[in-house]
């Protein structure tokens, strides 16, 4: 599925020259790493104005059928924590508030922002599942300072840098395989041996560009660093550490439930994650049944 995320109006091309809007649009399309979708900026303009107009934001979202449907689905998902079932974009807006709506729109836009997302179906599906399990875990375990919507967003954006590097470098796939299989070095250290950057830095840059909260951007940057979740001396531990711990645990649950484990991350970060969340492998197994339900609802 290839969808444009841009809403640049089409204009004529007098004298055979492209109009500015078209030129910009073409330019943006030519760059295959997604800049921030305009819808996010438009919502942000409202959020930043002194009298945000819910009606106008509603109109913006409704103009994009896929986005509207996505927002309803997200608003009704367990990890955004609404008790009432919403039936319209307007209801979703009122119940979620502007902040969460903007977050939800970013989450929905991410996958759509990448042209040729179809090539990475498995990747995006896995991200969506980890995000859903993260949101649910944050709700179930309720670690201090962590809300489900943040955990969900983090789960979704955490590895988006991988897609960017896959699209840019033909041989990144081999590096990825090696990084997944390395039980000693950190994931990003393996990437840095082959490239001048790594997917965590790329992902955090994109998250910053998409106006995600600081904790999420920082956590994306650090999500493969054992030190980021091992600092138990800090009191209270940073929200970012908990975000990382929750998503690692979510990924581990997913691997346990699906029997597909192709990474070594749990070996490197599992113990610290459990410790930070006050869990044991045993108590984690007790969560399997409910986690399976969440997964089924996601798919």
């Amino acid at each position: 599925m290839v969808e444009s995320t841009m809403n640049v109006p089409t204009r004529g091309r007098p004298n055979g020259r492209p109009s500015l809007a078209n030129a910009l649009d073409d330019a943006i399309r030519a760059i295959d790493i997604p800049p921030r979708p305009q819808i996010i900026d438009r919502i942000r303009v409202e959020v930043l104005s002194e009298n945000p107009c819910f009606h106008r934001i509603g109109q913006l979202i409704k103009a994009d059928v896929g986005l509207a449907a996505g927002l309803l689905k997200t608003a009704n998902s367990p990890y955004f924590g609404l008790r009432t079932r919403v039936r319209s974009v307007s209801e979703a807006l009122v119940l979620l508030g502007l902040e969460l709506t903007a977050r939800a729109v970013a989450a929905i836009s991410l996958r759509r922002a990448f042209p040729d997302s179809a090539h990475y179906v498995r990747f995006w599906d896995s991200s969506a599942r980890i995000a859903a399990l993260s949101g649910w875990l944050a709700q179930t375990l309720a670690p201090p300072g962590l809300n489900a919507a943040d955990a969900y967003t983090f789960g979704l954006f955490r590895d988006c840098g991988i897609v960017i590097l896959l699209r840019r470098f033909a041989d990144y796939r081999q590096t990825l395989a090696r990084a997944n299989g390395d039980a000693e070095r950190s994931f990003t250290a393996v990437e840095q041996a082959d490239y001048p950057t790594d997917h965590a830095v790329v992902g955090s840059l994109l998250a910053t560009e998409w106006w995600l909260p600081d904790e999420i951007c920082q956590a994306i940057r650090a999500h493969h660093e054992p030190s980021a979740i091992a600092c138990l001396g800090a009191d209270p531990p940073l929200v970012g550490s908990r975000l990382i711990a929750v998503s690692q645990t979510a990924e581990h649950l997913l691997q346990q439930l699906t029997g597909a484990s192709r990474t070594q991350e749990w070996t490197k970060l599992g113990q610290a994650s459990l410790l930070l969340l006050g869990l044991t492998e045993e108590s984690l197994r007790e969560l399997h049944a409910e986690a399976a339900t969440i997964l089924a609802a996601t798919d």
């Binding site: 760059i31 295959d32 790493i33 840098g161 960017i164 590097l165 840019r168 840095q192 490239y195 001048p196 950057t197 790594d198 830095v201 790329v202 840059l205 994109l206 940057r221």
Partner: peptide, 15 residues
């Protein structure tokens, strides 16, 4: 220490 990583990430993202 991550300055160069970020610089390259920006160049890669924007191509």
């Amino acid at each position: 220490p991550s300055f160069l990583s970020v610089l390259h990430a920006a160049l890669i993202c924007a191509d």
